[in-house]
């Protein structure tokens, strides 16, 4: 893997500067069923195609941001800082 990911602060960098933070998910309500919690903890959409995910610029500015990436060719379509509605 050597695709470029555009950090909103630092610009395009080699993916190895970052840490993948998982798919963007909605956290269940505190009183949700255990089943909903299990899904939140362990089940992932894992799309073959465009997906929205978290990334952390581990060796750069050390900020968390979100990205839309096509998993079939690692083309990064967009990156942005999380807004309130995007966060778990």
């Amino acid at each position: 893997m050597s695709f470029l990911l555009a950090c909103p602060i630092c610009g395009p960098r080699d993916v190895y500067e970052f840490r993948f933070g998982g798919e963007i998910l909605r956290r269940p309500q505190p009183d949700a069923d255990e089943q909903d919690w299990v899904a939140y903890r362990y089940l992932r959409a894992n799309p073959a195609g465009q997906g929205r995910e978290w990334w952390f610029h581990r060796l750069g500015c050390r900020r968390w941001f979100q990205a839309e990436r096509d998993t079939t060719d690692n083309r990064v379509i967009d990156t942005w800082f999380a807004g309130e509605d995007g966060h778990v």
């Binding site: 840490r19 933070g21 952390f56 900020r63 968390w64 941001f65 800082f81 999380a82 309130e84 966060h87």
Partner: peptide, 9 residues
């Protein structure tokens, strides 16, 4: 990282 993630946004 964990603490910053929970803060983000």
């Amino acid at each position: 990282q964990w603490m910053r993630w929970w803060l983000a946004g």
